[in-house]
């Protein structure tokens, strides 16, 4: 297996790991958003949806472990890349013209990713842990819709959530097409379409996820 470790640790190997894990997370976000949108239908539908997941809990646990590993790989590898790349460019230019030759989305992947990572930790503590183990912060009841209402009435929490989702959109906008480039699927016939699809996907994800805290902030969940 040494060839595998060696290959994945090469410069192209590291790109490849970022792209494969990134695509997995891109697919995961679609499912996650689809589930979250049941919040708009009402407490019954959302709680029903979460209960359905409870029924297949062993399967969900397996998926969670795989997903956790994918996240760890993506974050660990990304951080490693960022540190190594900073070292490879230890001296910066006096005049920086980066904004004229590359997109802002591509240049700040580590920064946007880091804030999404902080968001992820908060998100796991406040929602995942509450849904699975601790219940509503006050009533301790496993009323999932009420847990969502509780957190999104906190303006700071909801504000950070929205902010993180915008940055997630930035991250995805670059990541989507970047993965295809890494796999070598860059053909002038279809690559422009991939880039547009990536931007559309990023907007749908950012707006989709951010719409939930906005909705609860405005309506208070009633």
């Amino acid at each position: 297996m040494s060839w595998l470790v060696q290959s994945l640790n090469s410069s192209i190997g590291k790109k490849f790991v970022m792209a494969v894990t990134g695509i997995c997370l891109i697919l995961f976000l679609i499912i996650h958003l689809a589930g979250n949108l049941t919040l708009f239908i009402g407490p019954k539908t959302f709680d029903g949806y979460v209960h359905t997941l409870e029924v297949v809990k062993p399967l969900i646990r397996v998926i969670e472990v795989i997903l956790g590993l994918i996240f760890i790989f993506h974050i660990f590898n990304g951080t490693k890349l960022w540190l190594e790349n900073r070292k490879a460019k230890s001296t910066k230019y006096k005049v920086n013209a980066a904004s004229e030759n590359s997109s802002i989305f591509s240049r700040f992947m580590f920064q946007t990713g880091s804030i999404v990572f902080i968001f992820l930790i908060i998100h796991l503590v406040t929602f995942w842990a509450a849904f699975n183990f601790t219940g509503h912060p006050e009533t301790k009841a496993f009323e999932f819709y009420q847990i969502v209402v509780y957190w999104f009435q906190n303006e700071i929490y909801a504000g950070f959530y929205i902010f993180a989702m915008i940055l997630l959109g930035f991250h995805l906008n670059h990541g989507f097409q970047s993965a295809f480039q890494t796999f070598g699927w860059n053909n002038s016939k279809y690559f422009p379409l991939i880039q547009k699809l990536g931007t559309l996907y990023a907007i749908i994800m950012a707006v989709g996820f951010a719409s939930i805290p906005i909705y609860f902030l405005i309506t208070g969940g009633n």
Partner: peptide, 15 residues
Amino acid sequence: AGFGSCTNTYACEAE
């Protein structure tokens, strides 16, 4: 040789 890893910013193509 100590070159960094590509993150697909495409600044190279532009310059």
